[in-house]
Amino acid sequence: MDIVSRNNVTVTGPQDAPVLLLAHGFGCDQNMWRLVAPALAENYRVIQFDYVGSGRSDLSAWDATRYATLDGYAQDVVEICEALDLREVSFVGHSVSSMVGVLAAAATPDRITSLIMIGPSPCYVDSPGYRGGFSAEDIDELLESLDSNYLGWSATMAPVIMGNPDRPELGEELTNSFCATDPAIARVFARATFLSDSRDDLKTVNVPTLVLECSQDVIAPREVGAYVHDVIPGSRLVTLDATGHCPQLSAPEATLAALTEFIGNQS
């Protein structure tokens, strides 16, 4: 199978520059990096991709069982690293991809040598002695929100959204075209994201790690950022003065500065 087209892998930046692998989170695709990727590509080999089931990936490769847990997404990352024979990779994971990066780094320690986590949370649901910020009912409510907004999704739009525009006129009808995802697939990704518990996996991290959090983030509150920072020995915690869960969109300059400073210190 051609991994590059399966995961819609795009590569920019100088060929022999240090490698950055940018992994999007739940809810969107590699478009999430559009405000930071061009600047990063000036000094780094920037690899972007869509998880199978997201963006312009090959939907026929999607499998409900494989992508029901974060391991399936980590497998995508590992397969991309192997297909491009990437070495000395700094893995930049947004949101849930931070934990995917942890799993991928454990699977290919010879390829992934540092982790940058943007808005990480190892576990979203509260449990005794741990505050993730959400209850199981909250997650049900999210799934309901997803369902409500699927009404705007239609199968005829899928080819356009997924990048097979044999009917280009449909593209103009799309309003929220970025990040549109097949409802059934998004549901599986949502469950894998919000119902997984990667706290034990965090303890396996033994590569230099940057934890990048926003000062106001409902999804990954500051106490969760502090938890991640505490569990990973030697990790660095940087708090951006930003609201929301996507600093690479809402505060791209600050995000870039924190990223490049951390990576610069590694080499």
Binding site: G25, G27, L142, S145, L151, N176, I219, C246
Partner: peptide
């Protein structure tokens, strides 16, 4: 917004708005 709506907002609505400059017809409570 409700908590589920907040998550949806931060994972879908806000990124879309930021990328497109507009978002329309999102169903929330």
């Amino acid at each position: 917004l409700t908590v589920g709506g907040k998550i949806y907002h931060d994972t879908h609505f806000a990124p879309l708005l930021s990328m497109q400059g507009s978002v329309s017809g999102i169903a929330l409570d």
